[in-house]
């Protein structure tokens, strides 16, 4: 049975089959990766471009990033705080879902874009405290309508940054100070420890 199968694989028909399978798997993988980078369908066509362009700070709607693990998604009350003073709110068809939700007293079912799996325990606070700006990871929101994820958020990406920021080089330690070196070493240990994110 197995022998027969191998013979078939070696036949031209079989070779073509193998090539097609490999190509299918490759296209599958490529498509999968592509899919993860597509902005999902959101309950409302929220334009980050417009809001950020108006000068609204990221932390106004996502305040949790400063204090803890999750930045949070804005409550509809927060939207309404500004929008009730804007005449267009009642007339625009794009804003109708918000008006309806507000009248019904329900929230939006947002689809988070930048996600890490359940076995990763990511906390925003130390990243903000370390001087990272939102756009370092989430991209420039003045350029997108619905939030998009600019990069594959996988472990390699996390570790690259953790490593480059703790490397004992000119950029991190311009004077070559021994104390700073030790600090960097300690940080590096912590930031490359499995137990820092996985538990």
């Amino acid at each position: 049975m197995i022998r027969k199968f191998f013979e078939w694989v070696l036949s031209p028909m079989g070779r073509i089959a193998v090539v097609i399978t490999v190509m299918s798997l490759f296209s599958l993988a490529a498509y999968g990766v592509y899919q993860t980078q597509q902005p999902p369908e959101q309950p409302i066509q929220f334009t980050h471009k417009l809001h950020v362009g108006l000068g609204i700070q990221c932390l106004y709607c996502h305040p949790g990033a400063l204090r803890g693990p999750s930045p949070g998604l804005p409550t509809i009350n927060k939207c309404w705080g500004c929008h009730q003073q804007i005449a267009k709110t009642q007339t625009s068809p794009l804003l109708k879902p918000m008006v309806d939700a507000m009248n019904a007293g329900v929230g939006f079912m947002w689809v988070p874009v930048a996600q890490v799996p359940d076995f990763v325990h990511f906390t925003h606070r130390p990243h903000v405290a370390a001087g990272l700006n939102c756009e370092n990871c989430h991209g420039d929101m003045t350029k997108v309508t619905i939030a998009e994820n600019p990069q594959v958020m996988n472990m390699g990406w996390c570790l690259n940054c953790h490593k480059s920021r703790t490397e004992d080089n000119f950029q991190n330690n311009p004077t070559g100070d021994a104390g700073v070196s030790a600090q960097l070493e300690k940080k590096r240990t912590k930031l490359t420890d499995c137990g820092t994110c996985h538990y």
Binding site: G64, R67, G68, S70, G72, L73, N77, G107, M109, V111
Partner: peptide
């Protein structure tokens, strides 16, 4: 994810 419609003021996300 469904956020609060009206979040209690003593609540912070993730805390």
């Amino acid at each position: 994810r469904e956020p609060y419609t009206k979040m209690p003021e003593y609540t912070y996300n993730g805390l």
